[in-house]
Design a protein around this nucleic acid. Structure first.
Lengths: 200, 200, 200, 200
DNA sequence: CATGAATGAGTATTCATTCAT
DNA sequence: TATGAATGAATACTCATTCAT
């Protein structure tokens, strides 16, 4: 157990790619090993189990994500700028760790209840709190509309952002910042033309 | 192999619930049978295979969905009304077949390439075409903003709607029509207050 | 249990046909039922088990076979005539009960040890005794060659006859008597021309 | 999937023995594994499936058989010598690969239609052609009797030889060459004494 | 007599994991 | 560090059989 951290990361990246593409359950240890050019059993020199690979992938991703988020939240920006910064940060993370994000999206719901993955539930709570607070501050400041259900709005914004991981391909037409800009534009101002008839 | 349609539906509903909660791959035939109060092998009196249950669940869902969609599309409404009707129809479907929708969301991507599930890919294409056309019509009529990437907008609206299946619970505070109304309001007009500073 | 003997025979004939074509193990009760135009469970009104069908088929066949054989053996014919009559009788049986013969050929070896199928082993012993005695009488009377291993000869004649069940189709070019005649000609006089060089 | 050829052969020999004794269908993978002193699942390290074991056993047998046959057929012997050599070669093969031959006898008929086992049908055709041609040459040369149905004679000789695999036990009283000699003597010259009354 | 629905024991196969080399 | 070979538990599926209707 242990070995060079460099090799570990390499193997984890490989594993993440396969997990993302095929789903965790559907991914066999052999597929990962094949991709890494070794035999299935050999992975167990580097890792305790398939599950521990998953854990390490998700934990590393969330660590990095929160480094970014915390920086934003501690910057004491206004609600609108906070929202913009959080969304942009999210798209940057999708750009850098698409595989991990995709895994997170697909698997976190059924992993969270397990003690081993408690950190997922923790993160989710922190995440929700930060978003709700930002939205509430925005409503108070009359920057966000007051007539919207705030929890519904939270889910709307959250899903809107993260689901992008399922189709986003790094190196495509749009940079993450560009996509973030467009998303924000839609989320903030809607897709209808201004001055058109308001919804219902 | 065929058996009474009533019992079949009962069992399919049970199966859909389990598939939705645990994921198709992670669902064992025994779990479904347990839930249905019978032994695993007994399911095979009613169905050919686990996969055929999945197929039947998804096909029935899409049939019903398209009945609703086609009615909307053939009604020749304006772009804004079409969009509203499609979204409302979608939330109604989520309300009626939450399990099937959740399964569709999670599994359709990796199922679609299989010949057996070709109807998923067909549906996806039809779906995309209907949405893109509606958005294009809206832009032409200056009802939707012209400065947005139309494919990005399509994904935005699509994801925004369907991801709701992952958290929606029928019989909760909001009726599907109420949720649809709020979603539409956000999508069309944004979450920012009118007259506020536009996004960057 | 019981029912009309006519229906029983019908069902047994159907079963025999399927057993012969697919092998006993590979034959499912459902295939027999399908062929008979009923459901698998319904067969159990007529028979105790799949195995009891097999038993009844084989027992009926052997009963009839031995009726013929016993008549021949009690007729006190000369060895050559006895051999001819036994072979002819065998081909007639193949003609009448091809399916049963084919089953017997394929399955009797591994069935014989089971107590339920002891009658197969009995029959085989009686069969061997009758043939060996006929061959011995023929050697004594200088009708059959004395330089041949008698057990080998027995197997040779026995196999030569019964294996025909694997390819014989009733209603073909040759009547069973005609095939018997040709087989006897080969067995008795060989396929080489008389006066040719003898086999080394 | 591949693994050491030595272990493979060992396991295939074990499997062939069990297949021959119990029949392919009636043989469970567990029986083979038991015989080999391992667990059922472990066999799948060496082989893809139970069927692939069967295929490998039969293919190896036919390869070796045809090596021998081709040598005989290319030697341009007279018809009688060709027949003698083919029969002798066959008994040698039965001696060396009794299990494979027994499997071939019992299973080839229902395997041959499957694409995977097309090589069985190919072999059977080649086999038939070689034998028919040898018999025809013999009739032309007046070495074999002209009054026999040649296809019937082919079946007679073919069955006569191969059925021996069902009772032959290597290391018994007779060497394969000795058995071949006796069989040939019966097939060529018959079991009746010369000068006796010919079979009507 | 036959059906419809189920049982329960078994079957081939998969796969994460282990461990001596 | 990695391999080759195995374990053992689980998985989808099959099938003879039962039985209330």
């Amino acid at each position: 157990m242990s070995a060079s951290p460099a090799r570990r990361r390499e193997l984890l990246d490989t594993a993440a790619e396969v997990f993302a593409e095929q789903g965790y359950d559907a991914t066999t240890v052999r597929k990962i090993a094949d991709q890494a050019g070794m035999l299935a059993g050999s992975l167990y020199y580097h890792f305790d189990s398939k599950e521990s690979m998953l854990e390490e992938i998700l934990a590393a991703f969330l660590d990095e994500l929160w480094a970014g988020y915390d920086a934003v939240l501690e910057a004491d920006l206004g609600p609108r700028e906070t929202l913009a910064a959080l969304v942009t940060e999210s798209f940057r993370e999708i750009d850098r760790h698409r595989a991990a994000v995709a895994i997170y999206q697909k698997e976190s719901k059924h992993l969270a209840p397990q003690p081993r993955f408690a950190f997922l539930a923790d993160s989710q709570q922190k995440f929700e709190k930060a978003w709700l607070r930002t939205l509430e501050r925005g409503v108070e400041a009359q920057i966000f509309r007051a007539d919207l259900d705030i929890r519904l709005t939270y889910r709307f914004v959250r899903d809107t952002v993260w689901v992008a991981a399922s189709w986003y391909r790094p190196g495509g037409h749009h940079s993450p910042e560009e996509i973030a800009r467009q998303y924000l534009s839609m989320v903030l101002d809607g897709i209808a033309t201004r001055g058109g008839p308001s919804a219902d």
